[in-house]
């Protein structure tokens, strides 16, 4: 009975608590221990399965973006340039679009930005944000070579600076990530 009253009171408190939006913290968040990544239905430009399984054995920078997210779009050119450099470090860069309706928004955005290296990857089931607990975009998940999330970067990072190079070196080499490797937030210019 008391337990029930307690739970009811807690529920009431929950309702009365302010719903003010907590400022989402940005930057690098290194997990205490690697987290498994739920299976995602990722598709390529032809609608074929292009999940993370194909990248097993390699570290991955999995960036979540959407065409309606201005800072995401502004970050894409840097990720596009980063892709070959990261590959040399053993890190695959995957930019996963959360846009509804398949690849149309991706094709248009990539064309507008003259994206060269990034592949079209879409979230077919539209469940990636939920499964990966991404409440804000852009967010980049850093996965080790066993496909486990070891850290995530919330916001647009300066992916081409020395810190990012250090971070990706460590990720590619399977070494522990440390807070001093955190790249600064990117200074974004208006999306083209």
């Amino acid at each position: 009975m008391d337990r029930r009253r307690f739970l009811l009171a807690m529920a009431a408190l929950g309702l009365a608590a302010p719903a003010a939006q907590a400022k989402t913290a940005q930057g690098l968040f290194i997990h205490e221990s690697p987290k498994p990544v739920p299976a995602l239905d990722i598709r390529d430009a032809d609608g074929q399965a292009a999940g993370l399984d194909a990248l097993k054995g390699r570290a991955v920078l999995l960036n979540l973006w959407a065409s309606w997210c201005m800072p995401c779009v502004a970050e894409l050119p840097a990720l596009d340039r980063l892709k070959p450099a990261a590959a040399a470090k053993g890190v695959a860069v995957v930019a996963l679009s959360l846009d509804r309706g398949g690849k149309i928004a991706v094709v248009n955005t990539f064309a507008r930005l003259s994206v060269k290296a990034l592949d079209i990857r879409t979230d077919e089931a539209r469940s990636a944000a939920e499964k990966l607990n991404a409440t804000a975009l852009p967010v980049s998940l850093l996965l080790d070579n066993q496909g486990r999330e070891v850290a995530r970067y919330v916001g647009a990072a300066d992916w081409e600076g020395p810190k990012a190079a250090q971070l990706l070196d460590a990720l590619g080499a399977g070494k522990p990530l440390t807070p001093d490797m955190a790249p600064p937030l990117a200074k974004l210019t208006a999306a083209p």
Binding site: Q21, T24, W68, P71, L98, A129, T135, A136, L137, L185
Partner: peptide
């Protein structure tokens, strides 16, 4: 207007509608 990070709440709503 989200210059830094954009909440995914509209995405949540549209998936809920599906």
């Amino acid at each position: 207007y989200c210059p830094d990070i954009c909440p995914t709440v509209l995405n949540t709503l549209s998936v809920a509608l599906e």
